[in-house]
Amino acid sequence: MFELDHELAQKIVDRALAILPCNVNVMDSQGLILGSGETERINTRHEGAQLVLANQRVVEIDEHSALSLKGVQPGINVPLMHDERLIGVLGLTGDPQALRTYAELLRMTAEMLVSQRHREGERQWREQRTDDLLGLLLSNTGNSQRLLEEAEQLGLKPYLTRTPVLIELSSELDVTAVCEWLFARVSDSWCLCLSTHTLLWCYPSQSMVDPSKFLQKIEKQGWPILRMAVGVPAQGIEPLRNVCRRVTALAGYGRAVKQGEKYLLLTRYRLPTMLWTHREDDAVGELLAIIDKVQSKDNNGQLIQTLRSWCEHSGQIQSCAEALGVHRNSLRYRMDRIAEITGMDLNKLEDVIELYFGIQLLPHFVTCLCE
């Protein structure tokens, strides 16, 4: 239920005083003066306003009548309505007959300002409730059918297929602005601020969005992005929640292992991310022990660089050699050396997979060891 407050009442007064030749008072539904051109009258009771509230009609007070009323000066007092409900009283000081036209203009202006404030309040409530609801839906507590029904009522369309994208920004001042920018450009988007630097954007998969292009567009707006982790489409709250969890893990993997990569796809790093989430497991330590063997014999980092490039090029000798700027025979020599050090057979898929996962996790463990 909408109620007048001091701020809005004084705004009405200030707007009216800029054009009217008399003092203006704004009273609440109890007859208390909330705003006035005569500041000493604020927070005092206005008996003329109480007459308006009691009779729900215009009350004109001449000099004689004013003498019998407390806190009242000659003038005209009119009801202030909102949604067909009496919420306050507007008072103009002076000769009632001369103020009737002004009173109607004041009422029109005041009701317009009240409507604007009400709409703004509704918008702010809706935004806050939407944020709260999205937070619940994407958490482990958001399984209630009531929440899904409320999401439908708010127009959130919880059953659409969506792709979650976690965006990390370099400035905390940009998070809300980026959310608003994305929401305005992709209809039916969900956008949730997770922290002062991080937001989660879930866009409808049918919208044909290219996140990599949006990354460029966002940065052109002057909002530098540290990292963008892109998930896969998911339909329904539970599947979407699971993908959001994996996207969060992907971003963590990027911070720890792929610091130089700004754009991370879950489809590309699905397995390394899954392994990284279990980095405390003994089996992961065994994979790193294999890589440690290479490091112990690699004084200048050449072998580690070669292994990383070899994995990135799926073991393709020619493309890997070109990327490293070496001859194919030199690359073969280095890979034979790695096989010799680790005891791995590069012709066996199982051994190649172990080397691949080990090198994918190396930066995180190097950091940990340095700490």
Rank of each mutant, 00 (worst) to 15 (best):
M1L: 11
F2P: 06
E3R: 14
L4V: 02
L4G: 01
L4K: 03
E7P: 00
E7D: 09
D14M: 02
L17H: 03
A18R: 02
A18G: 06
I19Q: 03
L20I: 10
N25G: 11
Q30K: 06
G31Y: 00
I33K: 15
E40N: 15
N43K: 08
Q50W: 00
L51Q: 02
L53A: 02
L53N: 12
N55Q: 13
D62M: 08
D62S: 15
E63G: 08
S65Q: 11
A66R: 10
S68Y: 03
L69G: 01
K70N: 02
K70G: 06
V72L: 04
Q73F: 03
I76E: 00
R85W: 09
R85F: 13
L86C: 08
G91M: 06
G91K: 13
R100I: 05
Y102V: 01
L105D: 14
T109P: 15
H118D: 12
G121I: 07
W125R: 04
R126L: 05
L134E: 12
L134Q: 06
G135W: 06
L136I: 10
L137I: 13
L138K: 09
T141P: 14
T141F: 07
G142L: 08
S144G: 06
S144C: 02
R146D: 08
R146P: 01
L147K: 09
E152C: 15
Y159W: 07
T161E: 11
T161V: 14
R162P: 15
P164N: 15
E168M: 03
L169C: 05
S171H: 08
S171I: 01
E172W: 12
L173E: 07
V178G: 07
V178T: 01
W181R: 11
A184F: 01
C191I: 15
L192T: 00
S195D: 14
T196N: 13
T196P: 01
T198L: 12
L200S: 04
M208H: 10
P211Q: 14
K213H: 01
F214E: 11
F214P: 05
L215D: 04
L215Q: 15
W223R: 08
V232S: 01
P239N: 05
R241I: 13
N242F: 04
R245Y: 11
A249R: 10
A251Y: 08
A251I: 02
G252C: 01
G254Q: 06
R255Y: 03
R255L: 05
A256N: 10
V257I: 02
V257P: 10
Q259H: 15
G260H: 04
K262Y: 00
Y263T: 06
L264E: 07
L265F: 07
R268L: 03
Y269M: 04
R270C: 14
L271D: 00
T273N: 02
L275F: 03
H278Q: 07
E280I: 09
E280D: 14
A283Q: 08
V284A: 09
I291W: 07
N299L: 11
Q305L: 08
W310V: 00
C311Y: 14
E322R: 10
R328Y: 06
N329H: 01
S330I: 09
G343D: 05
N347R: 09
K348H: 12
K348V: 06
I353L: 05
G358F: 09
L361F: 13
L361C: 13
C368T: 11
